[in-house]
């Protein structure tokens, strides 16, 4: 473990000896292998690793979209493994944000309606001033009445990030949020996420294959075969590439 001043910060989410096993017997796949990981508040963490290493599985289990086979997943003070299906749903709605690789938006709702969707589902108005601020930060103020199919891929992803931010969740998970867009657009999305961390104090965990994308983060965690094998603080594209080459070797 690299020493870092950030370790002093409070933890937003944490996995303790978390394992996820798919199938059984001969076909058993150990997607997460007794992982221990902390995500500190107000920091931007990137997760990298080869395909099939368990990155998405980790995101899903941390966000309450899936359950671990053993171990614990904790968001704030809540142990997710003790929650019922309904409480998990409410936790996702109120305390967690999630951004998928693509198609994050409900096609019948406008951009602003997509952003406020979790609050609408909760039947609360949300913090309007905050929502205005988030919308302002996306740079899409004049397009909020548009439907997703009238927005570009990058704009759609920014709306998705804005939705994740709008409810001020304890933590946001993003699974390859820039996997589907060109590098310019990726830059816009990543810049937006970076500023959410810097200016709004949001905690974000992001999976990516792109060293440039990962370099927007404060810290990079490397995953191989369901285990955390390494991590890197204050990364640059070059240091990340070096690490990856080393891991691959």
């Amino acid at each position: 473990m690299t020493a870092s001043p950030a370790q002093a910060l409070a933890t937003a989410a944490r996995a303790v000896a978390a394992s996820k096993i798919y199938g059984s017997g001969d076909t058993e796949v150990r997607a997460l292998d007794a992982i221990d990981v902390d995500f500190e508040q107000g920091r931007f963490t990137a997760i990298m690793g080869p395909s099939g290493s368990g990155k998405s599985t980790l995101m899903h289990c941390m966000a309450g979209l899936d359950t671990v086979t053993s171990g614990q997943v904790i968001i704030g003070d809540t142990d997710l493994t003790t929650l019922s299906e309904k409480d998990l749903t409410l936790l996702r709605r109120d305390n967690v944000g999630f951004v998928f690789q693509a198609y994050n938006l409900v096609p019948t709702l406008t951009a602003i309606e997509n952003i406020t969707l979790p609050m609408d589902l909760a039947g609360s108005a949300g913090d309007t001033a905050w929502i205005d601020e988030v919308v302002g930060a996306t740079g899409l103020t004049d397009r909020v009445k548009h439907r997703p199919n009238e927005l570009s891929g990058g704009q759609q992803q920014r709306v998705a990030v804005a939705r994740a931010l709008a409810g001020r969740p304890q933590i946001i998970f993003a699974d390859e949020p820039t996997g589907n867009v060109d590098s310019n657009t990726a830059g816009e999305i990543l810049g937006f996420m970076r500023s959410a961390v810097d200016q709004m104090g949001q905690t974000i965990v992001m999976v990516t294959h792109d060293p440039v994308a990962a370099s927007y983060a404060d810290r990079v965690v490397f995953l191989v075969d369901g285990k955390i094998v390494d991590e890197l603080a204050d990364p640059t594209p070059q240091t990340i590439r070096d690490h990856m080459t080393r891991l691959g070797a």
Binding site: E85, K86, T89, L90, L121
Partner: peptide, 16 residues
């Protein structure tokens, strides 16, 4: 299906 998964992921309960 995809849309339903999405709604559920952002916190729509089964009942809703």
């Amino acid at each position: 299906t995809h849309e339903i998964g999405l709604l559920r992921s952002v916190g729509m309960t089964r009942r809703q």
